[in-house]
Nucleic acid binder design. Structure first.
Length: 262
DNA sequence: ATGGTGGCGGTGCCA
């Protein structure tokens, strides 16, 4: 069972790259972020033609998340608990069956939080606390789950090309990192970290200042696994080549494989 | 080096 996350930075701009990647990578489940599209603007026909059921939480112009699956999926949430009216489209969650029992996949687009010292940063931290509460509830089931997405948190100084370059950025603040550790310390496993990928450290390279050719990247897209899922972790990958394609997203797909054979 | 790039929507905001 291959599960992936990808911040596509506009699903309409990235439809061609997305479909080509789906056909090549053949993930079973994918969560997408930054659709920047309303539900009716989502390229549903193209995605379904590639064999995927598409569940969408859209929003005009900003945010937007989706869950694509080769297998029948039951959507279990379209927002985090305690969502307010007109909540930004940042969370989707679904449940699929495997020979080893149900697997829940959550897709999230965590608030960026810049600039620090503003209500945006407070909102980021509050959103992380809500996500942590959701993880607590999912953990109580003692089932397999994967929370994938653009976390907009660079976990450690090993996950950025130059710690000094982002010292004042919300992605690297001690408070952001502490909130991510609090989530991990519930008992979740960072899939990429667990298997020590060292040939592809980053998942995001800014469009500006030649970040990609200089490999000035950050690791901010993560797959966090419940203990029951982590026990079945077989492989991880970062599809770095997507960043070098024509009209790329600034993020690349991150994936893991769970051995769910009976 | 205080710029630079990209997407949305049609101007500045967001990342």
């Amino acid at each position: 069972m291959k599960i992936a996350t990808w911040n596509v930075n506009s699903v309409r701009k990235r439809t061609g790259n997305l479909v080509a990647w789906l056909q090549r990578a053949k993930p079973d489940v994918v969560v997408l972020q930054e659709l920047k599209a309303q539900q009716e603007q989502f390229p549903k026909a193209e995605i379904e033609a590639a064999g995927y059921q598409a569940e969408i939480v859209g929003q005009k112009g900003f945010n937007g998340v989706a869950l694509l699956s080769l297998h029948p999926v039951e959507i279990t949430a379209r927002a985090l608990p305690d969502a307010v009216v007109d909540e930004p489209a940042r969370y989707i969650e679904g449940r699929i069956s495997t020979p080893r029992g149900p697997l829940t996949v959550g897709g999230l687009y965590l608030p960026n939080g810049n600039p620090i010292g503003t209500e945006k940063f407070a909102y980021k931290l509050a959103w992380m606390e809500r996500l942590t509460q959701r993880a607590r509830a999912l953990l109580a089931s003692e089932e397999m789950f994967v929370l994938g997405g653009d976390y907009n948190v660079c976990p450690t100084e090993l996950d950025i090309y130059d710690p000094k370059a982002f010292a004042g950025d919300a992605l690297c603040q001690p408070e952001s990192r502490a909130a991510l550790r609090k989530l991990l310390n519930l008992g979740l496993t960072d899939a990429v970290r667990a298997l020590h990928l060292d040939d592809a450290r980053y998942t995001y390279w800014d469009y500006q200042a030649g970040a990609w050719p200089k490999d000035h990247g950050l690791r901010i897209d993560h797959l966090l696994l419940s203990p029951q899922a982590a026990d079945r972790l077989a492989a991880v990958g970062i599809d770095k080549a997507e960043r070098g394609k024509a009209e790329p997203s600034d993020h690349v797909p991150v994936w893991c494989e769970l051995d769910v054979a009976d």
